[in-house]
Measured scan of single mutants.
Amino acid sequence: MDPFVVLVLCLSCLLLLSIWRQSSGRGKLPPGPTPLPVIGNILQIDIKDVSKSLTNLSKIYGPVFTLYFGLERMVVLHGYEVVKEALIDLGEEFSGRGHFPLAERANRGFGIVFSNGKRWKEIRRFSLMTLRNFGMGKRSIEDRVQEEARCLVEELRKTKASPCDPTFILGCAPCNVICSIIFQKRFDYKDQQFLNLMEKLNENIRIVSTPWIQICNNFPTIIDYFPGTHNKLLKNLAFMESDILEKVKEHQESMDINNPRDFIDCFLIKMEKEKQNQQSEFTIENLVITAADLLGAGTETTSTTLRYALLLLLKHPEVTAKVQEEIERVIGRNRSPCMQDRGHMPYTDAVVHEVQRYIDLIPTSLPHAVTCDVKFRNYLIPKGTTILTSLTSVLHDNKEFPNPEMFDPRHFLDEGGNFKKSNYFMPFSAGKRICVGEGLARMELFLFLTFILQNFNLKSLIDPKDLDTTPVVNGFASVPPFYQLCFIPV
């Protein structure tokens, strides 16, 4: 058959498939802009700032609406009420993970971030239990974070109060905490193996944040037939998995079943207990991918939040002064901060919360999916439909947070200066898919920041009023603009 005829037939089939998918069930789905064949609503979305586009569309179609990214149908949730109703009140029905062709290629359905069903539930339950087990290797997770915080302070001392970009050092600290939990080992910041790991993690975040990856996920045929950065992403992930597998083999040879040292040991012990169960989800494949998931999810998000926190503290020296006064009063100079201190430091706690609220790190979270046909607000959402959640619409709700575009710790303080919780605080998402490392991340943010401010004054290279804190939105995360500062020993 003539190649031209084959091409026309293929394009015609794709067009018909697109029209059929977009028209099927439209009477039951939430409203939304009319999609174009094949490309859907992509032309109506700013790929570099999806969150802003969703906010604009919500003003037209309401808090629940339908979009098509290519052939992929998505239902968008915008605003606290619908997000709570879906992710919390109907948590089980909305607990699936959205379709990610690239991740599915890399992870093969294993791990904790992109798995679904029984596998996801069992691996998540085990990971939560293990991360909360403060007795691994007779050292609590808090001990590990405190140790890394001391190392971080010593690295900052080496800058000798000269101007520096904190990106690298602030990236090393949370990565080392995860390494300590998974591998029972922290690395020197100049260790070549550690630097290679950091390089792969950072490069992957840069790649994932590009519009090209959005295109690959919406048109998965590209993955096999086109060159691009997605190939580098898959190569980096394969490198990390190979490295983790080597460490798993080392653990198998040296493990003491009665004295687990780290996450890998705990997983291997669980595998041993379930070795007679042919349906067990505790396999080497799941261990390797879960460890890679924890490394990827637990490094860049925390380091970016820390980097943004220091920029905001530079911009608002009056806030920094209040935090340091609270540190001096509650902790002093002669001991290290600990998590028990947080309950006695409402202002510092409010500042950490406000940093996370203000920066809105992951504006749309990772997409969910419905696990069955769901009736939601008089609409029928078919099983498997991807759910896109606007966390921006919750964290920047102007009824809950007056002047949401302003950095103001009073958003989390009552009139008496006591810490005030808010149900709208969802930087880790909400419901059954809430970030498994939430507790660890909150511990790291509090301890790293208090250790830094206990030991250093922060000095800006320019007038604080002239510092730009506008986030650089890159399609996946909101990151701070480049800046330098000086760490002046107190």
Rank of each mutant, 00 (worst) to 15 (best):
K48L: 08
E274S: 09
A297M: 06
K158T: 15
F267G: 03
S115W: 02
E328K: 14
E272I: 13
L366T: 04
C13L: 11
D463K: 13
T210Y: 09
N231I: 11
E155W: 13
F183R: 03
I331T: 04
P367W: 06
R433L: 03
L453T: 04
E281L: 10
E241V: 11
H316A: 07
R357I: 00
L467N: 04
L57V: 07
H411I: 02
R307P: 00
E142V: 07
T34D: 08
F226G: 06
L395I: 05
D341C: 05
S242A: 15
S162C: 14
S390Q: 06
T392V: 03
L388F: 06
P63C: 08
A238P: 04
A149G: 11
V370N: 05
K383S: 10
V351H: 01
G298M: 04
F476R: 09
I45S: 03
G70I: 02
I331L: 08
I462D: 14
Q340T: 14
S95A: 13
P63H: 07
V436P: 08
L295V: 10
K375E: 08
A321D: 13
C216E: 00
H344F: 14
G79H: 02
D46F: 04
G137K: 12
T364M: 14
L268R: 02
N196Y: 13
S280H: 08
N378S: 12
I181Q: 05
F114S: 10
R377E: 05
G343D: 15
I257T: 14
I289S: 10
S162E: 15
I181T: 06
G62Y: 00
S51D: 05
D373K: 06
V208L: 14
F69M: 14
K59W: 07
F219P: 04
K160C: 09
N41V: 00
P317I: 05
D293Y: 04
H344V: 08
G437R: 01
I19F: 13
E326Q: 01
P37D: 00
G62L: 00
I19D: 03
Y308I: 04
P260D: 02
E104F: 15
L312S: 02
Q22E: 12
I207M: 11
F267W: 15
F194L: 14
V83L: 14
